[in-house]
Every structure is written in C-alpha cells, then in structure tokens.
Design a protein around this nucleic acid. Sequence first.
DNA 1: ATTAGGTTTAACCATTTAGTTAAACCAGAA
DNA 2: TTCTGGTTTAACTAAATGGTTAAACCTAAT
Lengths: 202, 202
Amino acid sequence: MTKEQNTEDKIVEAAKTVFVQKGMDGARMQHIADEAGINKALLHYYFRTKDKLFEKVFAILFKDIFFIFERAVSEETSFEEFLEGFIRQYIKMFKARPYIPQFVIHELNRNPERIVEQLQNSKFDKQRLFDLIDKAVEDKVIRPIQPVHLITNILSLCIFPFIAKPIITGFALDGNKTKYKQYIDERPDEVVAFVKQAVLLK
Amino acid sequence: MTKEQNTEDKIVEAAKTVFVQKGMDGARMQHIADEAGINKALLHYYFRTKDKLFEKVFAILFKDIFFIFERAVSEETSFEEFLEGFIRQYIKMFKARPYIPQFVIHELNRNPERIVEQLQNSKFDKQRLFDLIDKAVEDKVIRPIQPVHLITNILSLCIFPFIAKPIITGFALDGNKTKYKQYIDERPDEVVAFVKQAVLLK
DNA sequence: ATTAGGTTTAACCATTTAGTTAAACCAGAA
DNA sequence: TTCTGGTTTAACTAAATGGTTAAACCTAAT
C-alpha cells in the first residue's frame, strides 16, 4: 500500500474544494469524484452518503476556526500583545484558507442547530477569554467595553474582507485582483492599528 | 382586478423568502408557489424560469444595500456627523432586513461576475465617498487611513453581526436569543464609539 | 498460485425537480 | 350572452442526481 496519497484523504480534500465552492446543495457527488480522480462507486464505497461526507468536511473546517482561538488565549503576555497576536494570527489563517469563512457561515445559517454540537466537541473555554477582557477593563488597560462586542468587532474586521471579496474587489478596487491582494496584505497592520486606537488607554 | 395583492408581487415576496432561506440551489419552485399561495403552473406563467425569477429577487435585494450608501453621502454635514449617521442608518437597515447580507454574499460568491452588472445599473458614485474621506484626512479630522480600509472596517462592524448570528448566539451568548436581540440593539452605540475612537483626532 | 481488498466499469434504479401542456374554471368587460 | 385573461388542476416529460450492484481488474501479501 504505497500510494502517493491515501484515497480517503484525496476524497476529503476534493470534497473540501467542491463543497466550499458550491455549498452542500450545489455540490455533486460526480464532481467530487472527478476532483479526487476516482469514480463515483468508490466515493460511495468510502463515504456511504453525501451527508456523511459533508459532515466530515464541515467538522474539519469548523475546527480550524476555533484552533486559533484556543492558542491565542493560552499565551501569557500583556493584553496589548495578546490583541496584536490574535489579530495577526487570525488574518494569517484566513489568508491561507480564504474559503473557510464563507462556507462555514453559509452552512451554519442553513442549519444553525449544528453549531451546538460542534461547540460541544471543541472543548474551548470561552470564559477565560471573557475574563481576560473584563480584567483589562478593570485594570484600565482598555476603555470599558463588553467582551462580546470587543470579540465580535475584532472578528468582523478580520473575517469580513474575505467573505466580501467580490464586493470589495468589484466596488472599491475597480475589479483589480492585484489591488485586492495588496489590500489583504495591508489588513494586519490596519486592523491592529484600528483596534488598538479604538480601545487601548494610554 | 381588485386583488388584495398583485399576484406578481406575491410571487416576488415569496421568492425573496425562499431564496434567502435556501439559496438558489436549495430553493424549490414548488416551495415558492406554496409560499405565494398559488400553483406551480401559474408561477411559471409569470416567470418562465427559475433563473429569471432569481435574477429579479437578487437585483431587488442588492439595490437595498446600496441605497443607504447613496443617501448617506449626499448629505452635507461634518465628517463626524456623516460617520455617525452612516453607521446608524446601515445597522438600522439590516435590523429591518437581517436576511440580506447572508444572501447577497453567498450568491455573489457563487457568481462573482454578477456584481459588475449590478454596479453598472446602480449609478452610485463611489469617488465622492472616497474624496470625502481623503479630505477628512487632509484636514486632520481623522488619522491617516486609506478610504478602502475605513469603508470596509465600518461595513465589517455593521454587517458581520448579522451574518454570523448563529455563531454569536451559540458561542458567546449561550444560545440565548433574547441576549442576541439585546446585543444587536447595543450595536449602533458600540460601533459608533468604536469607530470614532479609532479614527477621530481631537 | 492463491487470496483479499482496493479499484474500475458500466449499467441500472428511484426520486426529485424544472418546466410543459391541455383542459376546465371563473370573474369581469363588452 | 359571449369573450378574454388570469387561474387551477392534473398529468406528463426530460433531465439530473444520489445511491446501488455485479462483475471484472489489479496488485501486494501469503
């Protein structure tokens, strides 16, 4: 069994690509089989149904989003460093996997109940993150702000540019893809500056 | 012809509802007919194909997004008032039509070329908005920032909370829908404060 | 050489779904 | 009354698609 790549992995990779592009409804099993370089029969041999395959892919992509969360909170640094690190890591992650946000959000809206299950599997402790922010407010490191708002503000600024790529490119950047790439490269510095200015007291 | 409501309008309303919930691929013509309280034959009688009906709905929803843009820019006030008015109007609009962002973004990613056509129809002058921001920087009303970044930052903060509703509710707010409603009510003040603090020089 | 399991081929089934058609229905206008 | 056009009913077609099946194929291990 000296395959260049495990067939199961090939399938999952192909499924990622197709599901992300087309969504659950738009994806075709035949298309996934083609993408994986195998035939439909074998595809069903590995993953009996489309649903099972989809669940697998979704779980993988969803996990990626929360991975950074966990790592960022676990580090012991000043709040300012934490903020900066968090933002830069997050944007970096989406630069490498720009397809994730759009996909996860779409499918989460299609089936909102799923998030409960997914979050139970990921044993992430949100309370610690909330406490971190509350403490920074108490210590007068940042201006008073509710943790939910600060977190969603940061996530907004990090994620939205990837979700809205066609709008940003088409509307603000004259459809110029090079400009979009440059825009994305500027985001880390821009977001860090924006957020720091918005909340840091000094 | 004294109908309670024009049949064509009934269809478009129904189509909005269904397309927004399910997306183009997930939507079923039968479902739309049911929602409109008519039968499938009549549905096809008015809009020959699913595509034609979809295009109609998409154009309507897309226009809503840019309507606020146009109005906000056309007012003659201080930059600070402009900022605040723009943010409050935008969030208010999405509070009334929370289904729009998710839908438009999904379909725009499914077919990015479409944005070009849509933007040509909407004769909105983006340059004026850009100039407004550049001038505010020159006049030292705000710190140096590229218009694209400021605009996308604001849009991020306004729109993301609606797109990510299930994540925010499930993750940060313990699945409590009342808390989500309250969270959304707090957004205008929060975003205005956040953005002002981030860019305004005083 | 035999075996076993991953893989292919190709045909096939059942279901869903967009779209069509034809006949009947019904109300208001002429 | 007759005509017209929106509306319904119900049956239908054609295509797409998820999933199945059975037989053959190939290769590495025994």
